[in-house]
Design a protein around this nucleic acid. Structure first.
Lengths: 139, 139
DNA sequence: GTGATTGCAAATCTTTTGCACTAAA
DNA sequence: TTTAGTGCAAAAGATTTGCAATCAC
């Protein structure tokens, strides 16, 4: 995609989410939403920004990621207590977590089936089902 | 259960796990493994210990929880990135997570069914399946 | 006795916040 | 011009670690 068109697409994306398309947000969005699904920490996003010579402070990375989350552009995944992973795939899907490497992979919601759900607490609704297949090398 | 018998049970539990039954470990184990499944943070364990007038430092609580984890007496649950939850139920089960209150509830593995699993990365084995049903009040 | 365990404080790591400054609308 | 967003540094929260004192074996 030509740079001009890319810029316009990102600007539309951010404005559509009610976010001002600032230079920092455009840079982060350009990397996050390049079409490849990602599972990243704030630190990794910061490093990626610096690598493409865009100055963004780590605080702004956190602020931006949280803003993107609030706008529904990103999701959080919880796999280990340590740090927060942001998932650029906001569609209906699950994860494979490699316990050896700490690496996350998406799996389509349709590639597995959860059935026979138990009764939920009264007054509560199912918001989402998160499935994590934890794998590791055979011991 | 009489105190003496309880003490012996806990001592056996710790020794069986290869851990020395120190006063602190016995106190924490006595509360953690009282028969009721719990989902707790280190802070909550520390508070519970102090409430029953057992002096344990927070650092020791962490060390102990990690030792219990290594011995397979506890498990970690990841639901939100914030802090680590320790689960006293090490059996095969899943969770309901109440997004409004942050409260976790166990559900028996048999109360739901995960089928049609995708192909796993080659050389890797399925270590565990974690399912979290995220619920909240109807909006 | 000897090595594991503890307590404390300090260090580390991740994330958030306050505030003056800058940039978008 | 008006308000949202940014950068920095400092704060906050969670967890780990170094080391001397203590305890279980």
């Amino acid at each position: 995609m030509p740079p001009r068109q890319k810029h316009d697409r990102l600007t539309a994306l951010l404005q559509g989410a009610g976010l001002r398309p600032t230079r920092q947000r455009l840079a982060l969005a350009g990397w996050l939403f390049d079409g490849c699904d990602k599972h990243v920490t704030a630190e990794q996003v910061h490093a990626a920004a610096l690598k493409q010579r865009v100055h963004v402070s780590l605080a702004t990375v956190y602020n931006t990621l949280n803003a993107f989350m609030g706008a529904g552009l990103l999701r959080q995944v919880a796999v280990d207590g340590g740090q927060i992973y942001f998932d650029t795939n906001t569609g209906d899907h699950h994860h494979i977590f490699d316990e050896d490497s700490g690496h996350l992979t998406d799996i389509a919601a349709s590639s597995l089936r959860v059935s026979h759900l138990p009764k939920l607490p009264s007054g509560k609704n199912l918001a989402r089902i998160d499935v994590v297949l934890r794998v590791r090398v055979r011991t």
